[in-house]
Amino acid sequence: MSVSLPPPRKQRRIILAVVGICAAPIAASYLLYYVWKPAGGLTYGQLLETRPVPAFRQVTLDGKAADLGQLKGKWLLAMVDDGSCNVACLDALHALRQIRIAQGKEMGRLERVWFLTGTAAPSAEALARADGARLFRAQDPVPLPGDQTGGYYLIDPLGNQVVRYPRSADPVKVIKEIGKFLKNNENLG
C-alpha cells in the first residue's frame, strides 16, 4: 500500500499555515505589549510610588508616643495640617468623615488620621469635625509627597502610600475610587 503525498507546493503551504497559527498569538502579544500599550486603569487621584511611609516621630494630643504601626491592618485616609485649622482644613475634615461613612459596611476598614503640624491646639470646631479621627502631633516633618496641606492621602494596611487626592477633589469620585480599593483588596486589611 502506498501513501500518496500532496504536491510539494501544497505541503509547504500547510506547514506555513501551522507555523503561522502557532506564532500568531506570540506576535500579537508582543505587538500589544510593546507597540499598542493599553492605557490601564485610570485613577482619579494621583498615584504615588508604592513604598512604605517612612517612620517619623509623632505623639498623641496628650503627649504619648504614637506611630502608624498602631494602625496596621487598616486603610488610612490621612491629612496634614496645622492645629489652627482654617476653613479649607475644616472642609477637608468634613470630607474625610463623609468619605469614610459613605463606604457603608466597609467603613470599619478605613481609619482617618490628622497629622497636626505646629504647636497650635485644634479648635473645638475642628475637633467636632474630626469626630472619631486619630489626631497625632508630628514631631518631625511628615514624609508624604506633594503639597501636604493641599491634599489628603490614602495609605494601605501595610503602611504603603497609595494615592494623593487634592482637597478640591470631587468627593463622589473619591468615594467610588476608595470603594474600589477596598473591594479589590478585601484580603488586605
Rank of each mutant, 00 (worst) to 15 (best):
P7F: 10
G40Y: 02
Y153L: 01
A124D: 12
D156C: 12
T43M: 11
A65C: 06
D147Q: 12
A126K: 06
V172E: 15
I14P: 03
I15P: 05
G69Q: 00
M107S: 14
A92K: 03
G45V: 13
Q148K: 07
D147N: 14
L93S: 03
I175L: 08
S2I: 14
R134C: 03
K10A: 14
L188Q: 09
G132M: 11
L144Y: 00
V19L: 15
A95T: 14
A102T: 05
A128I: 00
L32H: 13
L135S: 06
R12S: 01
A78Y: 01
A17P: 10
D67Q: 04
L135C: 06
M79I: 03
S2D: 12
G83S: 13
L135D: 02
A24E: 08
R97W: 07
S168F: 03
C89Q: 05
L68P: 00
A133I: 02
R12Q: 07
L76M: 15
Y34P: 00
A88F: 01
T50K: 14
N185H: 14
F136M: 09
C89N: 09
D82L: 11
K37Q: 13
A169V: 11
I21G: 07
E125H: 11
Y30W: 05
P171C: 04
L116Q: 10
A120W: 01
G159P: 03
L42F: 02
D81V: 05
P38M: 11
A95F: 06
R129H: 10
G150C: 06
R51Q: 15
A17L: 15
P141F: 05
E49G: 10
S168D: 11
K64R: 15
G118N: 13
L188N: 10
P122E: 08
Y30I: 13
I101R: 05
A27F: 14
Q103F: 06
L71H: 02
R167G: 15
T43V: 13
D62H: 01
P38W: 07
A124H: 02
K64F: 02
G189C: 08
P54W: 07
K72M: 05
A23T: 09
F56T: 05
G151W: 03
L188D: 10
A95G: 06
R13D: 07
G73I: 03
V174R: 04
L32V: 08
R57C: 00
M1H: 12
N185L: 05
A65I: 09
F115W: 12
L154Q: 07
N86A: 15
A28N: 07
A169E: 04
Q46R: 14
P166Y: 02
A169G: 08
